[in-house]
Amino acid sequence: MKIKLPQWFYQLASPRWFYEFSGKLLPWFSIAAFILLMTGSVWGLAFAPEDYQQGNSFRIIYVHVPASILAQSCYMLMAIAGAIGLIWKIKMAHVVAKSCASFGASIAIMSLATGAIWGKPTWGAWWVWDARLTAMLVLFFLYVGVIALHSAFENTQSADKASAILSLVGLVNIPIIKYSVEWWNTLHQGATFKVTEKPAMPPEMWIPLLIMVLGFYCFFAVILMQRARIEVLQREKKAGWVQEIIKQN
């Protein structure tokens, strides 16, 4: 069976085309990330009302929830890109997958650390071996595993393949994180945003959260594109167009 992919997909799969196109996108995403993150933090920290139960510690939500959502999206992107690279042998897909790993690990740390800090005043403990917290810790270890595995190979192609397979296996953890609060009795509160329902918070609380989530995604796009660009240059070092860029810099 052969699935025909749309043309933009093949264009995106060309390292040179990606390098040029991402260069045009970068400034816009950087500006959007900056504006969204600034607006979201100021709104969340200084203007949103405090929670009637949790008081001001609830403001941690504006970094904790976006970090947690992004840690999972980033993982899914890494696994899907790895799968595309395995199935269609697209080099660019492996570049994207590799670029996801280190950002993902850092954002998973952010989710775990801010969660621990929020847990202390709310539950009275920095850490509990709760289903969701444990699944999130596993996600962090998966990122570390993918990074370690990739660096263990001399040959880039073998490294790409092995990390793609590991990230695909680890994908099973994503639904576990998502449903952990429903499957097990847990200290962790339920989802803040659901596609099918209105948020349980008033708009002056969730609008800044939405802004922060968008800002985190834009920041992710910026870092991902930059890492992928460097990776492209490294892998295509011998190509004429890369030599030109090196001369210009």
């Binding site: 008081g55 001001n56 510690s57 941690i60 970094v63 904790h64 970090a67 801010t114 800090i117 929020w118």
Partner: peptide, 16 residues
């Protein structure tokens, strides 16, 4: 000061 949660809130934002 953030009520009694200043340390927690600012530490989280600092880490982020």
């Amino acid at each position: 000061q953030m009520g009694k949660h200043g340390l927690y809130v600012w530490l989280s934002y600092g880490i982020a």
